[in-house]
């Protein structure tokens, strides 16, 4: 069965790009969110296996959303991958400490996305 993926990114262009890459393999993009509130709502509703999470989003950051996900769903098995243009070491550490499993810097190679998703299975 295809793994369910939720894409969180404020850029419609980036969401489409990620969707096109992700769906070339055995994954199903079940939802897309452009801001934090919608991301959390869709997460609860869809229970995805994997979430790709941007950091700079309207209203709240992707790292804050990761923390909220862990708060509302303590036993979750969802793997969160940060996908962001920000490359500061401090942010990478913060995201990983918050519960993200991987950190990908934009712009990315298509293979990098697929390689990380495979590793998380």
């Amino acid at each position: 069965m295809a793994k369910k993926v939720l894409i969180v990114d404020d850029s419609a262009f980036m969401r489409k790009l990620l969707r096109d890459i992700i769906e070339t393999r055995n994954y199903k993009v079940v939802g897309e969110a452009g801001d934090g509130s919608k991301a959390l709502k869709l997460y609860i509703q869809l229970k995805p296996d994997i979430v790709t999470m941007d950091i700079i989003l309207p209203n709240k950051t992707g790292i804050e959303i990761v923390k909220e996900i862990n708060k509302v769903d303590k036993d979750n098995n969802t793997k969160i991958v940060m996908v962001t243009a920000l490359g500061q070491r401090q942010l990478v550490m913060e995201a990983l400490q918050a519960g993200a499993k991987e950190y990908i810097t934009k712009p990315f190679e298509k293979d990098r996305i697929l390689e990380v998703l495979k590793r998380l299975e």
Partner: peptide
């Protein structure tokens, strides 16, 4: 926007 995002962040 994404182009600006990528160049700006670089």
């Amino acid at each position: 926007e994404e182009t600006q995002n990528i160049i700006g962040n670089a």
